[in-house]
Design a protein around this nucleic acid. Structure first.
Lengths: 184, 184
DNA sequence: GTCTATACTGAGATAGAC
DNA sequence: GTCTATCTCAGTATAGAC
């Protein structure tokens, strides 16, 4: 049982999604997940600080990609232009991940404890975007509000697209952006 | 030991805030909270589905007040006008509750597990506002986005005001509204 | 890797309000 | 008698300490 290959983390994540779908989150123990991945419960908790965390790892990549896009955006763009440019820069990434994201999202949506954790992650993401905007000279309050509103639109589009794949992600982002802009 | 008709629930909430401030959330057990309120641990969990929930009860009143205000707003008002009218209608309520809200918020802000729960509650509130807007004929997407953006502004103003009481809550809501509207 | 505290659950008993 | 709140007792699983 490959121990040093260090794809243990991925095997744990894979096993977790499978088991959560088979039995539900509450009826799955950390020991069972570890067992299916060929390690002990203790190893599970070495990799993930708590049971929920096993489903929330991909976020780091997304944060990096989005903040990088914001940092290198033309200086003359306003907050929303900058944000939506960033969101569009990761559509390809999200589309490629859809086969894994969809079952994962089904589990999350069905489990209150996981939805709670999801909100934390979205908040952290939103805060990171606000920080990236501030680095471009946008001041505190507008940066926070733009990041929040933009993230809400982006998250809404992404979740709707994971639920039904048509219309596509790009179109959904367009729709969300238009809707947001016509509100103000 | 007053068993029936009593205010066990409130005693539990009171005891919880006290103990969390004295020792911190993690170092306080449900048994200790129950003990200080004069009941057993099991009774604590009959009143609150989990340990975090004991700090999040006041929300119901706020949801009621805000959705009521939205429902009775003049039909010609747009989504943001409707929302901020509602936010302003509860400033008095929030100001009166400040003596209780402030210590409570300090505990929440200092505890990751409680911040997570707080986000859930804000999401539920935001969803309720979106639903109230839809009842006025605002369609799905704009209702969700307006509610999210508006709530972000309102929450930002309220938390900042709990942290430092000057400028006052009304002024802070004015500032947040202006900032949000001038984003475009 | 082992041990332990504690959050949480379930079932059945008891006590009082009605 | 019913109904509801609480208690008692006996567990399981998470997560942290060692």
């Amino acid at each position: 049982m490959e121990r040093s290959g260090s794809d243990v983390r991925e095997r744990l994540q894979q096993a977790a999604v499978e088991l959560f779908r088979e039995r539900g989150y509450d009826r799955t123990t950390a020991t069972e997940i570890a067992g299916r991945a060929g390690v002990t419960e203790r190893t599970f908790f070495r990799h993930f600080s708590d049971k929920r965390e096993v489903l929330f790892d991909g976020q780091a990549v997304l944060v990096e990609a989005l903040t990088a896009s914001i940092a290198e955006a033309p200086a003359e763009l306003g907050p929303f232009d900058t944000l939506f440019r960033a969101f569009r820069s990761v559509t390809r990434l999200l589309e490629d991940n859809r086969p894994f994201s969809k079952p994962r999202q089904e589990v999350i949506s069905a489990t209150p404890a996981l939805r709670e954790r999801e909100l934390s992650k979205l908040k952290a993401l939103s805060d990171a975007l606000a920080s990236a905007l501030r680095d471009r000279g946008v001041s505190e309050l507008p940066a926070a509000l733009a990041a929040h509103a933009g993230m809400a639109a982006f998250a809404h589009a992404t979740l709707a697209w994971l639920d039904h794949d048509e219309p596509g992600l790009s179109e959904r982002i367009d729709m969300a952006e238009k809707s947001l802009r016509s509100l103000l």
